[in-house]
Computed example of a mutant assay.
Amino acid sequence: MDDEALLRGRVYGAEHDDPDPGPQPGRSYRELVGGPLDGLLLDVTGWDAEQLSDGAALITEIGRYGPGGRAHYEPRPQDPSRWDWAGDSP
């Protein structure tokens, strides 16, 4: 990845060998803060207001519960474009 791509961030779920794992035009993203997915962007394109307010439980290989575990992220009240880590679950 070039420097510009690194500054744009990597999208959660992008393949490791994807030549352009960053955000794509016309899509909506939330920045994940803290926890095992810190710094990744989550594509929330098409999510409704209730889904956005609920946050997400994202499958991860690197969380506390290892492969298949989930990392929970919730919208930051003062900045809903950033979602904070709330813990892991099996």
Score class of each variant (00 low, 15 high):
residue 3 D to L: 13
residue 43 D to T: 02
residue 37 L to N: 05
residue 22 G to F: 04
residue 25 P to S: 10
residue 80 P to S: 12
residue 35 G to H: 06
residue 38 D to I: 06
residue 36 P to F: 01
residue 71 A to D: 00
residue 28 S to V: 10
residue 19 P to A: 11
residue 21 P to A: 05
residue 2 D to H: 09
residue 58 L to T: 07
residue 10 R to Y: 03
residue 28 S to M: 08
residue 79 D to H: 13
residue 9 G to W: 03
residue 14 A to K: 04
residue 44 V to L: 08
residue 15 E to I: 13
residue 71 A to R: 03
residue 48 D to F: 04
residue 45 T to Q: 01
residue 60 T to L: 08
residue 33 V to Q: 15
residue 41 L to M: 11
residue 67 P to V: 14
residue 1 M to S: 05
residue 87 G to F: 05
residue 12 Y to W: 13
residue 42 L to V: 11
residue 47 W to Y: 10
residue 17 D to G: 13
residue 72 H to P: 03
residue 2 D to Y: 00
residue 36 P to S: 15
residue 54 D to H: 13
residue 35 G to E: 01
residue 87 G to Y: 10
residue 21 P to Q: 00
residue 38 D to G: 12
residue 75 P to R: 02
residue 25 P to R: 09
residue 43 D to A: 05
residue 59 I to P: 03
residue 70 R to Q: 14
residue 25 P to G: 00
residue 5 A to R: 05
residue 88 D to Y: 13
residue 71 A to Y: 02
residue 72 H to R: 14
residue 56 A to V: 05
residue 55 G to M: 08
residue 40 L to W: 01
residue 48 D to H: 12
residue 21 P to Y: 00
residue 10 R to A: 07
residue 78 Q to F: 12
residue 44 V to T: 14
residue 41 L to Y: 10
residue 40 L to E: 09
residue 59 I to N: 10
residue 9 G to R: 04
residue 40 L to I: 03
residue 33 V to R: 14
residue 10 R to F: 00
residue 7 L to I: 07
residue 11 V to T: 07
residue 66 G to V: 10
